[in-house]
Design a protein around this nucleic acid. Structure first.
Lengths: 221, 221
DNA sequence: CGAGAATTTGAAAGTCGTCAAACGACGTGG
DNA sequence: CCACGTCGTTTGACGACTTTCAAATTCTCG
């Protein structure tokens, strides 16, 4: 889903045209731009809580955020990581089903969902785009159920490093992959030992992409 | 998500009005009815394969179907089980991301997606409904990532029996919950031993719903 | 009624989690 | 500028939950 080489980048199917010289297909979400306001938020801050009324949706301008759910006993799930160009808060019914928090210092553009929904009523192209975004989100989530339900720790990490650089903590990664911090560390160390990757605390370089792809057991790509 | 007491029933938020005496809110999907054809399919048959062009979508009239994905080495994932009233094949982009197979003998109503999409262009109420269905589907899938990533075997089975009767095999259940057949058997036996449920091969009765809810660690309900 | 399949149960192994401690990076304050 | 405390990361030892392998039992259906 991500095409990450060096710096944190947007998803391949990023949701708002940021700086394409001549957008081949116009981005319907750009219709919202006039209703947006810009926010800058320091690292590890909450943007909204789980259960909050879904009043706003957001586009990541720069930085990185995570979606989070907590169980009563403290078990934590990180749903996804979002990078520049990604949008969130659109695929909700009435309330946010995840909390969203910044991973790094982040610049966001915020839009009132009422405007989005209202505009979608009169602009079929926008309505279509909203559904398409929901379907892409759904498909990515389905891909993750396969990872969580059937893949080993090594396969999970291989899948992960193919998608992301590592601006996020080991704990975040663990809670995203259904593992523990310790397992994440051990597997990353093993991948490094075998020459597949090069890891620093907050960065990553892929050394053997093709073997990683095998390990990840990805059908697509 | 399911309100199952005795016979396999539809999801609470079922997608087509089947026989409500006076539907309080008209169901936009009913607009498609004139384009539907009815199919009867024996048990354990494939309705469509993973990767097939998404030409049709379906509504379950009676019976039960499962969505399935396979990894190259044979590991299997059952995405969801669908009962009477549920629809599938709508939340796809161009191709089906899951195979769909019958669990029991099933009667389906089939609709050409071209008609659905075309009709959605002229009928905003239908377009809105399609997105809503996608969002409900997404939320249910997200709920499952928490189950698969963070819940124990017992918690998974508790969640499961609260949603479904058991017209499906232990293998199907295992592949749905990210477990093995043996673990499913053992946990079901334990739940029975402790008086939480009553199990026959293809049926189920809940004896202690409130304890099961605790076990399931559900935030909602 | 009999054969094959699904379910169930048992024993052993393995992967990953838990607990604990050492290490290292970073930021603050002296 | 360096000392120090804190927090995240890493590594080790151990343990447990789940899987694997195997076999017995039960059910289904021809």
């Amino acid at each position: 889903m991500h095409v990450s080489i060096q710096a944190p980048q947007a998803k391949a199917t990023r949701a708002l045209s940021t700086a394409a010289p001549a957008t081949p297909t116009p981005e319907p979400l750009d219709l919202l731009e006039q209703f947006g306001t810009t926010l800058r938020i320091g690292r590890d801050h909450e943007i909204h809580a789980e259960g909050d009324a879904a009043e706003f949706c957001y586009r990541v301008v720069s930085g990185c955020v995570r979606t989070v759910r907590l169980m009563e006993d403290g078990r934590r799930q990180v749903g996804e990581f979002l990078l520049a160009g990604d949008v969130f808060g659109l695929d909700e019914l009435d309330t946010h089903s995840f909390a969203v928090e910044t991973v790094t210092e982040t610049v966001l553009r915020r839009y009132p969902r009422r405007m989005v929904e209202a505009l979608a009523e009169s602009r079929p192209v926008l309505a279509r785009r909203l559904r398409q975004l929901a379907l892409e989100h759904l498909r990515a989530t389905q891909e993750r159920t396969l990872l969580l339900g059937r893949k080993t720790a090594t396969e999970r990490l291989a899948s992960f490093v193919l998608e992301f650089d590592l601006p996020m903590s080991r704990t975040d990664i663990a809670d995203h992959l259904g593992l523990t911090v310790e397992t994440v560390c051990r597997v990353l160390a093993a991948l490094k030992r075998e020459g597949m990757i090069q890891v620093s605390r907050t960065g990553l370089r892929l050394l053997d992409r093709s073997t990683l792809l095998d390990l990840a057991c990805e059908t697509r790509h």
